[in-house]
């Protein structure tokens, strides 16, 4: 029962994803996998199979916070566990996501490419060293910068709450986790 399965190693993918973004920003496009897979599983199977099994990020946090002892293992504040906060964060996250898509569209339409990674939706960090041009439109690169900003920000948020609270505290307010649970709830209700 304790035998490791192939999917127990998906944390390697999550780690690699963050590292690759430091070398070539275009790898950020791979992040779609972490967006589409949980949705497909919840819509087709009606389960949170992604969170429960395949999410490398969850595994990474539970490993760093657990085995490597990087977590205080304290209870999260109750307001962070409340549906108001979780759904509020989901709405905020997707608003920012669509804003990012809009900025990508502007670059496709001719605006200048901004070679920055925006952390916590506020701090602009120069990231030109990970951009070596693209064969496609600069918009493709703009999306990569935007998408990577989002992934890096959420990883950092996850690390902060991992250290402060329990290893997988991020999973309480992770927008993908909240959204897939919402889909599952709707599906379960329909039947």
């Amino acid at each position: 029962m304790n035998k490791k399965k192939w999917y127990d190693y998906l944390w390697i993918f999550s780690t690699l994803y963050i590292i690759l973004g430091f070398f070539n920003i275009l790898f950020a496009w791979l992040g779609w996998i972490c967006f589409i897979t949980p949705l497909v599983i919840s819509i087709t199977q009606g389960t949170k199979g992604y969170c429960n099994r395949y999410c490398g990020r969850g595994q990474l946090f539970s490993m760093l916070g657990g085995r490597f002892g990087l977590s205080r293992k304290k209870d999260m504040p109750r307001w962070m566990v409340s549906p108001y906060f979780r759904y509020g964060f989901l709405i905020f996250f997707f608003t920012m996501f669509f804003l990012m898509l809009w900025n990508t569209y502007l670059v496709f339409a001719g605006a200048d490419l901004k070679q920055v990674v925006t952390l916590f939706w506020t701090f602009k960090v120069p990231w030109h060293w990970a951009y070596h041009g693209t064969l496609f439109s600069p918009g493709v690169a703009q999306f990569a910068f935007g998408f990577y900003s989002m992934m890096l920000t959420s990883t950092l948020l996850g690390i902060i709450t991992m250290v402060l609270f329990k290893p997988r505290s991020w999973c309480v307010y992770c927008p993908m986790g909240t959204m897939t649970q919402m889909i599952c709830k709707i599906k379960a209700h329909e039947k």
Binding site: K48, C51, N52, G58, V81, S82, R168, C171, G177
Partner: peptide
């Protein structure tokens, strides 16, 4: 009511 179905308890 508050469970987020993350599956940490499952594993």
């Amino acid at each position: 009511n508050l469970c987020v179905a993350c599956g940490c308890c499952l594993t």
